[in-house]
C-alpha cells in the first residue's frame, strides 16, 4: 500500500513528447502503454491525486523489472478504456497492452481478445495507488512473456461511490472533450522531470 515517498513524487512532472505516428512493432518482448487523450495534458494526476508522472514511472518500472521493453502511445480518437487498451494491444509487438484513462482507470488487454473483453480490469480508479500501478506493469510484462501471473488483487470500497462517483463522471466528460476525432495514435516519449 505504501507509495514511495510522497514528497519526492509531488515534484515530478510528466511530459509526453511526440515521436511520430504509433506503428505496430515486431519485437515480441514489448508492452504498449496506451494513454487517453487528456493524459498528462491537460490533466496531471488521477482522481485521487496520484501524479501521472508517478503512474507512468511505476508502470514502466513494473514492466522493466520483468526484463520487458515498454513503449508509450497516446490514443486521440476515443476515451473509452476498452478501445484505448485494444488500440494499444493491436500495435504491441507482444499483443499485450495497458490502457490508462486520465482518472487512473486501467486495463490489461490482449490483441486476440474481443475489444470488450480484457485480461485484467481495474475499474475503481480511486483505489489505484503507486503500488497497484507497478503491479499492473509487472503483470502485463509477464503476459507478454507468455506467463500466467496471478491477477493483481482488486480492492473494493463501498464508500467509493458517495465520495468519487460524481467526480469520476466529471473527469470522464472532460476527457471526452479532449478527443480529436480521426486523429491516429501517436508514439510518445515520456519525459519525467523534477519541477
Amino acid at each position: 500500500m505504501s507509495a514511495p515517498t510522497a514528497a519526492s513524487t509531488s515534484e515530478r512532472t510528466l511530459t509526453l513528447k511526440e515521436v511520430g505516428p504509433a506503428k505496430r512493432a515486431s519485437r515480441p518482448d514489448e508492452v504498449v502503454v496506451a494513454v487517453s487523450p487528456a493524459f498528462s495534458d491537460p490533466f496531471t494526476k488521477t482522481i485521487v491525486d496520484v501524479p501521472h508522472a508517478e503512474v507512468i514511472r511505476q508502470i514502466l518500472a513494473g514492466i522493466e523489472e520483468q526484463g520487458v521493453h515498454a513503449r508509450v502511445i497516446k490514443v486521440w480518437d476515443t476515451a473509452d478504456l476498452a478501445a484505448v487498451a485494444h488500440t494499444g494491444a493491436r500495435l504491441s509487438g507482444s499483443g499485450i497492452s495497458i490502457g490508462l484513462l486520465s482518472r487512473g482507470t486501467a486495463m490489461i488487454h490482449q490483441r486476440d481478445l474481443p475489444r470488450l473483453s480484457n485480461l485484467e480490469l481495474f475499474p475503481q480508479s480511486p483505489l489505484l495507488d503507486a503500488e497497484v500501478f507497478r503491479r499492473i506493469g509487472s503483470n502485463a510484462a509477464q503476459y507478454a512473456k507468455g506467463e500466467s501471473p496471478a491477477p493483481v488483487p482488486t480492492r473494493n470500497d463501498q464508500m467509493a461511490r458517495p465520495r468519487w462517483q460524481a467526480k469520476a463522471a466529471l473527469l470522464h466528460l472532460k476527457e471526452f472533450e479532449c478527443i480529436v476525432a480521426g486523429r491516429k495514435p501517436v508514439e510518445v516519449e515520456p519525459v519525467i522531470s523534477r519541477a
Binding site: 468519487w164 460524481a166 466528460l173
Partner: peptide, 14 residues
Amino acid sequence: NLDGFVEEWPEKGL
C-alpha cells in the same frame, strides 16, 4: 466531508 460534491455542468447534462 468525505462525500464528493461537484459543480453543475448543464451543457453536458451534469
